[in-house]
Amino acid sequence: MTALAPRPSAELSTDRHDPRDDWHDEAKKLRGVLEELYGDQDPLPTTAGAWCTRQKSAHTRRAYARNLLRWEAYARSAGIHPFQARLPLADAYANHLAQQPGRDGNTLSPSGQAQALAAAGSFYDYAVRIQAVPANPFTHVERPYVDPDHSPTQGMTPEEVERLITTARDWAPRSYALVTLLYLLGTRIDETLALDVNDLGYDRGHRTLPLLRKGGKRQLVPVPPLALDALEQHLDGRADGPLFTTESGRRWSQPEVWKHLRVLARAANIPGADSIKPHTLRHQFITDNLAENVPLERVQDAVGHSDPRTTQRYNRRRRALDDHPAYGLAARLADRMQAQKGDE
């Protein structure tokens, strides 16, 4: 067999393709942010973008990029290039995270700290693999303990959920459609906001929406009549573009939705309204279905959990409060005190 010989240099094409043009948008954005800080000759921006684009879902890419920038800012504040970081700096960063506020204003949760450290560690694993750095400084950093049975998400009563939905219905068609979808389908906010109008489909008598779950898994879910009616009112005949948009036609963003939900919660007089978030409605989908004795495996499949323990964790918080023996003890004490008062 004759080996293929390279063409003479004069025949080589002058049209060169930059492989970075094929990256996901989140990776391109991350590279751009880092290039503004380090310039286009530093290897960090391209290494970070290449690592980011390997992640399977847009949600993961955004989370990893956000957490890498958090670590980069910390290293830069110490006057250390991320590629020169060693274990002592990574240890100090772990301690720093434990003192930082999360989105709710409280100290960053152990799971939030663990996610930030995991993202940084993943980046360095990739950097080691492509020989950009000699070692991963996060390999031996102690991770915070994350209780597998704990769910930090605030819950609501059925009456509070109904008030929130009614308030959204009276507020605006977009608000009503969003709240009903999040509650009745138990979707994550990123899955919901990624949808386009033409994703609304039909299958065997069901109106459907395709969700891109964590890890890149795809799942077709039915849209129940109440949510479908709310969607159709919201769309008002619109046949293309993002499912949820701003008044200017731009895709609605997660921070905007967080803010809007809290406005609705305050208008609905929901206790702890300033802690309400989109995940609260997913939490309610799970706990309300399990409270109605819907089999665990059906709820697990509906929300796309790979492990039933994750689904049960949401329910365990509800039962720990609703069934706490303090209520029974307090009721018996109140009865005795009332009887004693009657004897007097």
Rank of each mutant, 00 (worst) to 15 (best):
R7G: 08
T14H: 09
P19Q: 11
P19M: 13
Y38D: 13
D40Y: 08
G49I: 01
A65T: 01
A65P: 01
R66N: 11
A85P: 01
P88L: 15
P101V: 12
D104M: 11
D104G: 13
G105W: 08
T107M: 02
L108E: 04
P110M: 14
Q115K: 04
Q115D: 04
A118V: 02
A120W: 05
A132C: 13
P134I: 04
F138V: 04
E142L: 07
P148K: 03
S151C: 03
Q154N: 10
M156H: 00
S175V: 03
T180S: 14
Y183V: 00
G186F: 12
D196M: 03
V197L: 09
N198Q: 13
D199Q: 05
L211P: 12
L220R: 15
V221N: 06
L228K: 10
L235A: 05
A239S: 11
A239T: 15
L243A: 01
L243Q: 00
E247K: 10
R250V: 05
V257P: 07
W258L: 11
I276G: 02
H283P: 03
N289E: 01
N293D: 15
L296I: 04
L296K: 06
T310P: 12
T311P: 13
D323Q: 05
A326L: 05
A331P: 03
A331K: 04
R336H: 01
R336S: 07
R336F: 00
